[in-house]
Nucleic acid binder design. Structure first.
Length: 439
RNA sequence: UCCCCGGUAGCUCAGCUGGUAGAGCGGGUGGCUGUUAACCACCUUGUCGGCGGUUCGAAUCCGUCCCGGGGAGCCA
């Protein structure tokens, strides 16, 4: 139950403790750790901004407050009033000499200890797991990544376009969709990409991007897959494949450098070796599909022409370089219906995948879009897609069609790579996986 | 959907070729005036995932189902 007793001292964040040396302040947060050696008691408090140690010395604070310590448990919420002072023995260099202890709510035995836990146990308690320093660091980096993406596009004149989440039909037809009832109008599907809508917006505003959740009902059970994930997608009129490759490269470089610049403490907490990240500050290697096949052959992996690169192949390719690699111009059979054929080799599509280094796989997929109405109609027929729900999309080729290109970047995969995580599930606050929708 | 691995105390795990269920951590009580995942003493904890089978006897062997983890395909 919330306390009705308020502290007279000003409330401050732990992160700003150093600026309040010599002052009496109030910290408000949760108990992270408790230690006692009898008449001297230590309480490590976390408040979201950081952690600080409070010291309770018997006789130097009211006996009632000293005794309140006995009631506290891990993750109990509490307000501590005390004097801030520099203390080399304290973690962080500053501590609070506590003069008042005001419990807000006393927690029962907390299930997550600082010791080891299994993944399933932690995932079932994701709502509590978020409180751990590691998860906080990851979420702060995710926040930085998202803001960097928005800044990048805003700075280049791209307009944010929110594309619909409820859609009447598949964008690509290949992957399975989450289905839902749409009132009296039959089925609707959760968006698996904002691309087609973004193309419409690009014909209105020139350069656009979207940033939102994406849903894929694929039964993919790997470290790189979620059923609900976040994607930033860009689309620009008059952009060629070359333009979009440069844009995607610049975006990844911008985001990674920004995280290195602003989130160094978090990367250190995660024990991430930042040397591979700093590598992005230079041109990304490029490989055509044909060159990729040659490289694979050189490394003992024979792939038939026309086959898409699998996970093993992607790993081999990405390990050839220290920077993300752009693999472009795949056989069009391996790719989606809306891609422009390569004028120099019509068997190829003008598309690109960016593979992250260190085995993290594909983080960007993009292409120049098919802009000719008749060719697009032919491709739709080849892929056995229904034409009627795509009529609006075909209108974009009827009314002032222009060459245009775009790409999508998976936020969780990028964050996983930046943080050096083994699985994307830790990069999103509440992951949705093939067999998990709790909490 | 397919392949591999696992399920034993609140948590992390040990338990060998079948013979009465264990440790560490956590929790509780007491002690300690500077602790750093504190320390010391004592105490606390079980449908061994479910069901069926083999056996004198099953946590252990077999079958099956459930749940979890890792990977593949597909994709970001």
């Amino acid at each position: 139950m919330p306390t009705t007793i308020a502290s007279a001292a000003p409330a401050v964040d732990i992160a700003s403790l150093a600026h309040h040396t010599g002052q009496t302040v109030t910290l408000r947060g949760w108990v992270y750790h408790l230690r006692s050696s009898g008449k001297v008691r230590f309480l490590v408090l976390r408040d979201g901004s950081g952690m600080a140690q409070g010291v309770l010395v018997k006789g130097r604070l009211p006996e009632d407050d000293f005794q309140q310590f006995e009631r506290l448990t891990l993750e109990s919420s509490v307000m501590l009033e005390g004097l801030v002072r520099a203390e080399p023995r304290a973690p962080g260099g500053y501590e609070l000499e506590v003069t008042r202890v005001i419990p807000v709510q006393i927690a029962p035995e907390y299930p997550i200890s600082p010791k080891e836990h299994g993944v399933a146990f932690l995932m079932d308690r994701r709502h509590l797991w978020l409180r751990s320093p590691r998860q906080q660091a990851i979420l702060r980096i995710r926040d930085e990544v998202c803001r960097a993406c928005r800044d990048f596009f805003h700075d280049r004149g791209f307009v944010l376009i929110d594309t619909p989440i409820l859609t009447p039909t598949a964008c690509e037809g290949t992957t399975s969709l989450f289905e839902t009832n749409y009132l009296d109008r039959g089925k609707a599907y959760l968006s698996q990409s904002g691309q087609l809508y973004l193309e419409a917006a690009a014909m209105a505003l020139g350069r656009v991007y979207c940033f939102g959740p994406t849903f894929r009902a694929e039964k993919s059970k790997t470290r790189r897959h979620l059923t609900e994930f976040w994607m930033v997608e860009a689309e620009a009129a008059f952009y060629t494949l070359e333009d979009i490759m440069q844009l995607a490269e610049a975006l990844v470089r911008f985001v990674v450098l920004r995280v290195l610049e602003h989130q160094e403490p978090q990367l250190r907490l995660l024990e991430r070796d930042t040397a591979p990240l700093a590598e992005v500050d230079g041109p990304f290697p490029r490989l055509s599909y044909g060159q990729a096949l040659e490289e694979l052959q050189r490394h003992g992996k024979d792939l038939a022409w026309g086959e898409d690169l699998g996970a093993d192949e992607e790993t081999v390719i990405s390990q050839l370089f220290t920077r993300p690699v752009l693999v472009h111009r795949y056989p069009k059979e391996a790719k989606a219906f809306y891609m422009q054929p390569d004028p120099e080799d019509p068997r190829l599509a003008l598309c690109v995948d960016m593979l992250a280094p260190e085995g993290y796989g594909e983080i960007v997929g993009g292409s120049q879009r098919l802009d000719d109405l008749e060719a697009l109609l032919a491709r739709i027929r080849e892929h056995n897609l229904p034409q009627e729900p795509l009529e609006w999309y075909l209108d974009l080729r009827r009314y002032g069609s222009v060459p245009h290109s775009g790409f999508g970047m998976g936020i969780e995969r990028l964050v996983a790579w930046i943080c050096g995580l083994h699985h994307v599930r830790e990069t999103i606050p509440f992951p949705r996986l093939i067999d998990r929708i709790y909490p």
